[in-house]
Design a binder for these strands. Structure first.
Lengths: 131, 131
DNA sequence: GAGTATCTACGAAAAGTATAGTATTTCAAG
DNA sequence: CTTGAAATACTATACTTTTCGTAGATACTC
């Protein structure tokens, strides 16, 4: 019994587009294209193709509004973040989140402030579970 | 003045191979091939090609030993972990490590134990900095 | 030193991803 | 209506990544 299995991760360009859609909430091809940085010169039809692919892969849905399509994320950014972290963790950290964080907090470029925030997050989660 | 820019991230298969090399310390084409899971049926020449590419991209170096090449990681796993985390953080977490950790600790599948380890790591880092 | 196992070097097919072109449809304005 | 701007659908091209085959080199065995 073979599954499709294609791990459900976004390609580079797909992620670029999903990020804009997540920021916008929803949008047309034109909306997304306008949202891209100045120096990103992408043909309108390329953008349309990417959104069509995202719809095929069921990362977005669309409804028709007049003559155009309005695209809406079908997967929340949160959920995709979790999925990506899981993937990275499996591939590079032996599926051990703690070692991922270990690497993160070892990074010298991490600010004191960020560290404090991180601890607060962990503490809060621990309290909620046990309390 | 155009730079090479190709962000220095490993492709899927390249990462698969680097993981084996990191685990082995070093190895020949045959060594790496043997290290791969049973069901990963890859031709010997494919493995050789991948290692050649990794050498071109300077992720590994090699020395000749008899008629064969012994490949050695040129980049430590730690360093690549840091690089990957940075990349993920930029692409999906607004370059804010704290929000990455937030998502991580929100994951229900995370064990109490892992959470405790994570806090210990953060605490230790904070103490070292301030103390 | 001929035979065979195994290796490397190179090239290129096969598969996947990114970008864009052409043809057609849609809708709104004259 | 008819026309034209802008959208979609479909196809095609270019580039990247993954996989493998062929040819020739290297060394071990008898």
């Amino acid at each position: 019994m073979r599954q499709k299995k294609k791990s459900e991760l976004l390609t580079e360009v797909e992620l670029e587009f999903m990020n804009e859609l997540w920021a916008l909430g929803e949008g047309t091809v034109r909306d997304v294209l306008n949202q891209l940085p100045e120096d990103r010169n992408l043909a309108y039809t390329s953008a349309a193709t990417i959104l069509r692919i995202l719809e095929q892969k069921e990362f977005v849905t669309s409804r028709k509004e007049g003559k155009r399509h309005v695209f809406v994320p079908a997967l929340a950014k949160d959920a995709y973040q979790t999925r990506s972290l899981k993937d990275l963790s499996v591939k590079l950290f032996d599926d051990t989140p703690a070692s991922l964080v270990a690497r993160l907090v070892d990074d010298d470029s991490l600010t004191e402030e960020a560290l404090g925030q991180i601890r607060a997050l962990v503490d809060r989660r621990l309290k909620n579970d046990t309390g």
